[in-house]
Protein backbone atom coordinates (compact mmCIF):
# COMPACT_ATOMS: atom_id res chain seq x y z
CA UNK A 1 0.00 0.00 0.00
CA UNK A 2 2.69 2.49 0.96
CA UNK A 3 4.59 1.59 -2.22
CA UNK A 4 1.49 2.39 -4.26
CA UNK A 5 1.06 5.75 -2.55
CA UNK A 6 4.72 6.54 -3.15
CA UNK A 7 4.34 5.78 -6.87
CA UNK A 8 1.21 7.89 -6.94
CA UNK A 9 3.15 10.82 -5.47
CA UNK A 10 6.01 10.24 -7.90
CA UNK A 11 3.52 10.39 -10.72
CA UNK A 12 2.06 13.64 -9.44
CA UNK A 13 5.22 15.65 -9.81
CA UNK A 14 5.98 14.38 -13.31
CA UNK A 15 2.33 14.82 -14.15
CA UNK A 16 2.45 18.42 -12.91
CA UNK A 17 5.18 19.24 -15.42
CA UNK A 18 3.29 17.51 -18.24
CA UNK A 19 0.05 19.21 -17.24
CA UNK A 20 1.59 22.70 -17.15
CA UNK A 21 3.29 22.35 -20.54
CA UNK A 22 0.23 20.75 -22.10
CA UNK A 23 -1.95 23.51 -20.63
CA UNK A 24 0.17 26.14 -22.37
CA UNK A 25 0.16 24.19 -25.63
CA UNK A 26 -3.60 23.87 -25.51
CA UNK A 27 -4.05 27.56 -24.71
CA UNK A 28 -2.12 28.41 -27.87
CA UNK A 29 -3.86 25.77 -29.96
CA UNK A 30 -7.33 26.59 -28.66
CA UNK A 31 -6.99 30.34 -29.16
CA UNK A 32 -4.77 30.78 -32.18
CA UNK A 33 -5.15 27.37 -33.80
CA UNK A 34 -1.37 27.05 -34.05
CA UNK A 35 0.51 23.83 -33.39
CA UNK A 36 3.51 25.12 -31.47
CA UNK A 37 6.51 22.78 -31.60
CA UNK A 38 8.60 25.45 -29.89
CA UNK A 39 6.71 25.07 -26.63
CA UNK A 40 9.31 22.73 -25.17
CA UNK A 41 11.89 25.41 -25.90
CA UNK A 42 9.82 27.90 -23.86
CA UNK A 43 9.88 25.44 -20.96
CA UNK A 44 13.66 25.26 -21.29
CA UNK A 45 14.04 29.04 -21.46
CA UNK A 46 12.05 29.29 -18.24
CA UNK A 47 14.48 26.91 -16.59
CA UNK A 48 17.39 29.00 -17.80
CA UNK A 49 15.73 32.13 -16.34
CA UNK A 50 16.21 30.45 -12.96
CA UNK A 51 19.82 29.59 -13.83
CA UNK A 52 20.49 33.17 -14.91
CA UNK A 53 18.99 34.69 -11.79
CA UNK A 54 20.90 32.43 -9.46
CA UNK A 55 24.09 33.30 -11.36
CA UNK A 56 23.36 37.02 -11.06
CA UNK A 57 22.66 36.66 -7.36
CA UNK A 58 25.89 34.77 -6.87
CA UNK A 59 28.00 37.49 -8.53
CA UNK A 60 30.76 38.26 -6.11
CA UNK A 61 34.12 39.90 -5.85
CA UNK A 62 37.24 38.27 -4.51
CA UNK A 63 39.32 39.61 -1.68
CA UNK A 64 42.54 38.11 -0.41
CA UNK A 65 42.74 37.58 3.30
CA UNK A 66 46.40 37.44 4.32
CA UNK A 67 45.53 36.17 7.80
CA UNK A 68 44.05 32.87 6.72
CA UNK A 69 45.68 30.27 4.52
CA UNK A 70 43.99 27.69 2.33
CA UNK A 71 45.07 24.08 2.25
CA UNK A 72 47.94 24.78 -0.16
CA UNK A 73 49.38 27.43 2.12
CA UNK A 74 48.49 30.35 -0.13
CA UNK A 75 46.56 33.32 1.22
CA UNK A 76 42.89 32.39 1.21
CA UNK A 77 40.64 34.02 -1.34
CA UNK A 78 37.30 35.00 0.04
CA UNK A 79 34.33 35.27 -2.28
CA UNK A 80 31.88 37.84 -1.03
CA UNK A 81 28.68 38.18 -3.04
CA UNK A 82 27.54 41.73 -3.69
CA UNK A 83 24.08 40.93 -2.41
CA UNK A 84 25.44 40.10 1.02
CA UNK A 85 27.35 43.37 1.09
CA UNK A 86 24.39 45.44 0.00
CA UNK A 87 21.58 43.88 2.00
CA UNK A 88 23.49 42.54 4.97
CA UNK A 89 24.32 38.91 5.71
CA UNK A 90 20.78 37.85 6.57
CA UNK A 91 18.73 39.25 3.71
CA UNK A 92 21.48 38.80 1.11
CA UNK A 93 22.15 35.18 1.95
CA UNK A 94 18.43 34.44 2.04
CA UNK A 95 18.02 35.95 -1.43
CA UNK A 96 20.81 33.76 -2.80
CA UNK A 97 19.28 30.74 -1.14
CA UNK A 98 15.82 31.50 -2.53
CA UNK A 99 17.06 32.28 -6.04
CA UNK A 100 14.85 29.66 -7.73
CA UNK A 101 11.51 30.79 -6.25
CA UNK A 102 12.50 34.43 -6.77
CA UNK A 103 13.18 33.60 -10.40
CA UNK A 104 9.41 33.29 -10.81
CA UNK A 105 9.15 37.07 -10.55
CA UNK A 106 12.00 37.42 -13.04
CA UNK A 107 10.65 34.81 -15.44
CA UNK A 108 7.09 36.13 -15.79
CA UNK A 109 7.95 39.38 -17.60
CA UNK A 110 10.72 37.71 -19.60
CA UNK A 111 8.48 34.89 -20.79
CA UNK A 112 5.55 37.16 -21.60
CA UNK A 113 7.90 39.35 -23.63
CA UNK A 114 9.28 36.33 -25.49
CA UNK A 115 5.74 35.12 -26.13
CA UNK A 116 4.73 38.52 -27.56
CA UNK A 117 7.77 38.68 -29.80
CA UNK A 118 7.21 35.13 -31.03
CA UNK A 119 3.55 35.69 -31.78
CA UNK A 120 3.86 39.11 -33.41
CA UNK A 121 7.10 38.39 -35.20
CA UNK A 122 6.60 34.87 -36.48
CA UNK A 123 3.46 32.93 -35.60
CA UNK A 124 1.15 35.71 -36.82
CA UNK A 125 2.20 35.04 -40.38
CA UNK A 126 1.31 31.37 -40.12
CA UNK A 127 -2.38 31.48 -39.20
CA UNK A 128 -3.46 30.88 -42.77
CA UNK A 129 -0.76 28.34 -43.58
CA UNK A 130 -1.40 24.58 -43.16
CA UNK A 131 -0.67 22.90 -39.83
CA UNK A 132 2.32 21.11 -41.36
CA UNK A 133 3.97 24.48 -42.07
CA UNK A 134 3.28 25.63 -38.51
CA UNK A 135 4.86 22.47 -37.15
CA UNK A 136 7.89 22.93 -39.38
CA UNK A 137 8.54 26.59 -38.63
CA UNK A 138 8.13 26.19 -34.88
CA UNK A 139 10.31 23.08 -35.02
CA UNK A 140 12.99 25.22 -36.69
CA UNK A 141 12.50 27.89 -34.02
CA UNK A 142 12.90 25.27 -31.30
CA UNK A 143 16.26 24.22 -32.80
CA UNK A 144 17.38 27.84 -32.98
CA UNK A 145 16.37 28.64 -29.39
CA UNK A 146 18.04 25.53 -28.07
CA UNK A 147 21.27 26.29 -29.94
CA UNK A 148 21.28 29.87 -28.66
CA UNK A 149 20.96 28.59 -25.09
CA UNK A 150 23.71 26.05 -25.77
CA UNK A 151 25.98 28.82 -27.02
CA UNK A 152 25.56 30.92 -23.90
CA UNK A 153 25.32 28.25 -21.23
CA UNK A 154 27.26 25.31 -22.63
CA UNK A 155 26.14 21.76 -23.16
CA UNK A 156 26.41 20.48 -19.59
CA UNK A 157 23.54 20.42 -17.11
CA UNK A 158 23.76 23.25 -14.59
CA UNK A 159 22.77 22.21 -11.06
CA UNK A 160 20.47 24.78 -9.48
CA UNK A 161 19.52 23.81 -5.93
CA UNK A 162 16.26 24.50 -4.19
CA UNK A 163 16.19 26.70 -1.05
CA UNK A 164 17.82 25.12 1.98
CA UNK A 165 14.56 24.39 3.79
CA UNK A 166 13.14 22.33 0.89
CA UNK A 167 16.27 20.42 0.08
CA UNK A 168 15.62 17.37 2.24
CA UNK A 169 12.81 14.87 2.22
CA UNK A 170 9.70 14.82 4.33
CA UNK A 171 8.13 11.80 5.90
CA UNK A 172 4.86 11.95 4.05
CA UNK A 173 3.57 8.68 5.52
CA UNK A 174 3.30 10.10 9.01
CA UNK A 175 1.00 12.85 7.78
CA UNK A 176 -1.58 10.36 6.54
CA UNK A 177 -1.28 7.82 9.32
CA UNK A 178 1.42 5.40 8.18
CA UNK A 179 4.44 4.24 10.11
CA UNK A 180 7.39 6.62 10.13
CA UNK A 181 9.81 6.15 7.22
CA UNK A 182 7.22 4.29 5.14
CA UNK A 183 6.81 7.03 2.57
CA UNK A 184 9.74 9.39 2.23
CA UNK A 185 9.22 12.05 -0.39
CA UNK A 186 11.48 14.90 -1.52
CA UNK A 187 10.08 18.15 -0.21
CA UNK A 188 10.66 20.14 -3.37
CA UNK A 189 8.56 17.77 -5.47
CA UNK A 190 5.64 18.39 -3.17
CA UNK A 191 6.24 22.13 -3.56
CA UNK A 192 6.28 21.63 -7.35
CA UNK A 193 2.96 19.83 -7.27
CA UNK A 194 1.31 22.50 -5.11
CA UNK A 195 2.79 25.23 -7.28
CA UNK A 196 1.45 23.69 -10.46
CA UNK A 197 -1.99 23.28 -8.91
CA UNK A 198 -1.86 26.97 -8.04
CA UNK A 199 -0.91 27.97 -11.59
CA UNK A 200 -3.57 25.75 -13.13
CA UNK A 201 -6.19 27.16 -10.77
CA UNK A 202 -5.05 30.69 -11.58
CA UNK A 203 -5.31 30.12 -15.34
CA UNK A 204 -8.76 28.61 -15.04
CA UNK A 205 -9.96 31.35 -12.68
CA UNK A 206 -8.62 33.97 -15.06
CA UNK A 207 -10.53 32.47 -17.96
CA UNK A 208 -13.67 31.82 -15.95
CA UNK A 209 -14.11 34.84 -13.71
CA UNK A 210 -12.74 37.85 -15.59
CA UNK A 211 -14.28 39.76 -18.46
CA UNK A 212 -11.08 39.33 -20.39
CA UNK A 213 -11.25 35.58 -19.90
CA UNK A 214 -14.87 35.54 -20.98
CA UNK A 215 -14.02 37.28 -24.24
CA UNK A 216 -11.15 34.87 -24.84
CA UNK A 217 -13.43 31.89 -24.25
CA UNK A 218 -15.97 33.38 -26.63
CA UNK A 219 -13.20 33.83 -29.17
CA UNK A 220 -12.14 30.23 -28.77
CA UNK A 221 -15.69 29.11 -29.47
CA UNK A 222 -16.36 31.40 -32.42
CA UNK A 223 -13.65 33.79 -33.41
CA UNK A 224 -15.46 35.37 -36.29
CA UNK A 225 -18.57 36.40 -34.38
CA UNK A 226 -16.50 37.94 -31.61
CA UNK A 227 -14.63 39.91 -34.26
CA UNK A 228 -17.89 41.09 -35.82
CA UNK A 229 -19.03 42.34 -32.42
CA UNK A 230 -16.21 44.88 -32.60
CA UNK A 231 -13.74 43.23 -30.25
CA UNK A 232 -10.11 43.16 -31.22
CA UNK A 233 -9.74 39.46 -30.57
CA UNK A 234 -6.28 39.20 -32.13
CA UNK A 235 -4.84 41.47 -29.45
CA UNK A 236 -6.32 39.34 -26.70
CA UNK A 237 -5.07 36.15 -28.31
CA UNK A 238 -1.59 37.66 -28.42
CA UNK A 239 -1.85 38.26 -24.69
CA UNK A 240 -2.98 34.66 -24.24
CA UNK A 241 0.10 33.53 -26.15
CA UNK A 242 2.21 35.52 -23.69
CA UNK A 243 0.38 33.88 -20.77
CA UNK A 244 0.87 30.42 -22.27
CA UNK A 245 4.58 31.12 -22.67
CA UNK A 246 4.71 32.28 -19.05
CA UNK A 247 2.99 29.08 -17.86
CA UNK A 248 5.57 26.96 -19.70
CA UNK A 249 8.35 29.17 -18.38
CA UNK A 250 7.18 28.89 -14.76
CA UNK A 251 6.96 25.13 -15.15
CA UNK A 252 10.59 25.27 -16.23
CA UNK A 253 11.72 27.61 -13.43
CA UNK A 254 10.37 25.40 -10.69
CA UNK A 255 11.61 22.23 -12.40
CA UNK A 256 15.29 23.21 -12.16
CA UNK A 257 15.91 21.72 -8.68
CA UNK A 258 14.33 18.41 -9.77
CA UNK A 259 16.43 18.03 -12.90
CA UNK A 260 19.47 20.17 -13.64
CA UNK A 261 18.58 22.11 -16.77
CA UNK A 262 20.45 21.46 -20.01
CA UNK A 263 19.82 22.79 -23.48
CA UNK A 264 17.88 19.81 -24.80
CA UNK A 265 15.44 19.41 -21.90
CA UNK A 266 12.83 21.20 -24.00
CA UNK A 267 12.98 18.66 -26.81
CA UNK A 268 12.80 15.83 -24.27
CA UNK A 269 9.57 17.20 -22.87
CA UNK A 270 8.09 18.34 -26.17
CA UNK A 271 7.24 14.92 -27.57
CA UNK A 272 5.64 13.78 -24.33
CA UNK A 273 3.64 16.95 -23.88
CA UNK A 274 2.29 16.67 -27.42
CA UNK A 275 1.21 13.15 -26.64
CA UNK A 276 -0.45 14.52 -23.49
CA UNK A 277 -2.34 17.14 -25.48
CA UNK A 278 -3.56 14.63 -28.03
CA UNK A 279 -4.68 12.20 -25.34
CA UNK A 280 -6.51 14.97 -23.50
CA UNK A 281 -8.14 16.21 -26.69
CA UNK A 282 -6.84 19.03 -28.88
CA UNK A 283 -8.17 22.35 -27.65
CA UNK A 284 -9.56 21.13 -24.35
CA UNK A 285 -7.95 22.79 -21.31
CA UNK A 286 -9.37 20.46 -18.64
CA UNK A 287 -8.46 17.53 -20.89
CA UNK A 288 -4.83 18.65 -21.07
CA UNK A 289 -4.55 18.96 -17.28
CA UNK A 290 -6.33 15.69 -16.64
CA UNK A 291 -4.31 13.68 -19.11
CA UNK A 292 -1.08 15.30 -17.91
CA UNK A 293 -1.61 14.03 -14.38
CA UNK A 294 -3.06 10.75 -15.60
CA UNK A 295 -0.13 9.93 -17.86
CA UNK A 296 2.37 11.01 -15.21
CA UNK A 297 0.78 8.67 -12.68
CA UNK A 298 0.43 5.79 -15.14
CA UNK A 299 4.06 6.17 -16.13
CA UNK A 300 5.25 6.03 -12.54
CA UNK A 301 3.13 2.96 -11.81
CA UNK A 302 4.55 1.29 -14.90
CA UNK A 303 8.06 1.79 -13.60
CA UNK A 304 7.36 -0.26 -10.44
CA UNK A 305 9.50 -3.38 -10.30
CA UNK A 306 6.48 -5.67 -9.97
CA UNK A 307 4.98 -4.33 -13.19
CA UNK A 308 8.29 -4.35 -15.00
CA UNK A 309 8.96 -7.99 -14.19
CA UNK A 310 5.55 -8.83 -15.65
CA UNK A 311 5.90 -6.71 -18.80
CA UNK A 312 9.55 -5.80 -19.35
CA UNK A 313 10.18 -2.40 -20.86
CA UNK A 314 6.64 -1.23 -20.29
CA UNK A 315 7.73 1.87 -18.38
CA UNK A 316 9.49 3.21 -21.49
CA UNK A 317 6.57 2.87 -23.85
CA UNK A 318 3.40 3.03 -21.76
CA UNK A 319 2.69 6.68 -22.62
CA UNK A 320 3.04 6.11 -26.36
CA UNK A 321 0.97 2.96 -26.12
CA UNK A 322 -1.83 4.87 -24.40
CA UNK A 323 -1.58 7.62 -26.99
CA UNK A 324 -1.90 5.16 -29.86
CA UNK A 325 -4.91 3.47 -28.29
CA UNK A 326 -6.60 6.79 -27.54
CA UNK A 327 -6.02 8.25 -31.01
CA UNK A 328 -7.34 5.12 -32.66
CA UNK A 329 -10.39 4.63 -30.46
CA UNK A 330 -11.29 8.15 -29.38
CA UNK A 331 -9.87 10.50 -31.99
CA UNK A 332 -11.17 13.50 -30.06
CA UNK A 333 -9.15 12.50 -27.01
CA UNK A 334 -10.54 12.18 -23.52
CA UNK A 335 -12.30 15.54 -23.40
CA UNK A 336 -11.94 17.00 -26.87
CA UNK A 337 -14.67 19.15 -28.33
CA UNK A 338 -16.53 18.28 -31.46
CA UNK A 339 -15.17 19.72 -34.66
CA UNK A 340 -11.67 20.58 -33.43
CA UNK A 341 -8.97 19.18 -35.71
CA UNK A 342 -11.13 16.49 -37.20
CA UNK A 343 -10.79 15.14 -40.67
Amino acid sequence: MDALILQFLNGLDKGSAYALIALGLTLIFGTLGVVNFAHGALFMIGAFCAVTLSKIFALSHTTIDPEKLDFLGNPAKIQSPYLVEWFGPNVGAAMIDWAVPLAILFAIPVMIAIGFIMERGLIKHFYKRPHADQILVTFGLAIVLQEVIKYFYGANPIPTPAPEMFRGSIDFGVLIGFDPNAIIYPAWRLVYFLFSCLIIAAVFAFLQFTTFGMVVRAGMADRETVGILGIDIDKRFTIMFGIAAAVAGLAGVMYTPINSPNYHMGMDFLVLSFVVVVVGGMGSLPGAVLSGFLLGIVQSFASMNEVKSLLPGIDQIIIYLIAIIVILTRPRGLMGRKGVMEE
Binding site: H131, F274, M282, L321, A323, I324, I327, M341
Partner: peptide, 16 residues
Protein backbone atom coordinates in the same frame (compact mmCIF):
# COMPACT_ATOMS: atom_id res chain seq x y z
CA UNK B 1 -5.78 9.15 -39.01
CA UNK B 2 -4.44 12.10 -40.94
CA UNK B 3 -3.03 15.53 -40.20
CA UNK B 4 -1.34 16.09 -36.89
CA UNK B 5 -2.72 12.84 -35.47
CA UNK B 6 -0.81 10.93 -38.11
CA UNK B 7 2.37 12.83 -37.21
CA UNK B 8 1.91 12.05 -33.52
CA UNK B 9 1.13 8.38 -34.21
CA UNK B 10 4.26 7.87 -36.29
CA UNK B 11 6.25 9.78 -33.69
CA UNK B 12 4.87 7.56 -30.95
CA UNK B 13 5.73 4.38 -32.84
CA UNK B 14 9.25 5.57 -33.59
CA UNK B 15 9.86 6.60 -29.98
CA UNK B 16 8.56 3.23 -28.84
Amino acid sequence: RSGIYFSILTLAFAQM
